[in-house]
Nucleic acid binder design. Sequence first.
DNA 1: GAAAATAAAATTGTGCACAATATAATGGTG
DNA 2: CACCATTATATTGTGCACAATTTTATTTTC
Lengths: 141, 141
Amino acid sequence: MDEKLQLKSQVCFPIYSLSRKIINSYRPFLEELDITYPQYLVLMVLWENELQTVNQIGEKLNLDSGTLTPLLKRLEAKTLICRSRRRSDERVVEITLTDNGKALKEKAAYVPEKVMEAIGITREDMEDLKRIVTKVLNRSK
Amino acid sequence: MDEKLQLKSQVCFPIYSLSRKIINSYRPFLEELDITYPQYLVLMVLWENELQTVNQIGEKLNLDSGTLTPLLKRLEAKTLICRSRRRSDERVVEITLTDNGKALKEKAAYVPEKVMEAIGITREDMEDLKRIVTKVLNRSK
DNA sequence: GAAAATAAAATTGTGCACAATATAATGGTG
DNA sequence: CACCATTATATTGTGCACAATTTTATTTTC
């Protein structure tokens, strides 16, 4: 029992640590764009497809309205997105990028590379990591 | 640029997702013990060494006082730990386990297995994952 | 077509993370 | 021994996560 309850025996603690470390590595670069990591994720989803509902964004990022509603309001306050109720179904809130939000994509383009560099991870390790993490993520759906 | 800013191209998003997924898998089991995942981490540190300062716990978990102080107060409120200033140096707060805190170790013993089972990860994938994640974590210190 | 079921967001409340600052105690240094 | 730097924790404020509930709109069913 002792052994299994040791921090070094756990697999989740390193993942939790790495996740935080990576997000912290993003911080200085994203601060230049005046956004946070979760906000960056939402913008990435929108850069791929300009118009999306709160639900669609939530499904892609596994985030619920309790997280997204205030986050989206902050992005709106920064004039990066617009929130508006769909005419044909007033329950749905549609999110679109503003010109500012679209323009930010250019500035964000260099971020992933910079972060990889800051973390000091090789492309090979990155691929390894991605492969195994994705495998485990999919297995446990 | 487009390619690099796609969610599926990122390595950090899967890690962030997996971290959250694992913590969520812990949730039902830890709820039975009436603790959260970060509280569980702190208790694990204490189960390995009964007396530790706030600083020592923070170094092991990479958490600062802004996170730990309120968390430790909650653990104290649950009567799982004691917080007391060190006599010889009043700046230091020493954390010790109460009998309740010690006793909880028995109940927590089965948790890691249950979580691995819940996630559906094989022992082999777990070892793979741990190896590569730890490698990247250490490289980027 | 009204009542019930369903669906989409929003709200509320708790608990991390983390930056920035504050408070208080200790340890040099001149 | 007074001053200053350092150390340890606490506090404040912002922004996620997430459970639980609420609100409002739509769809289904009788």
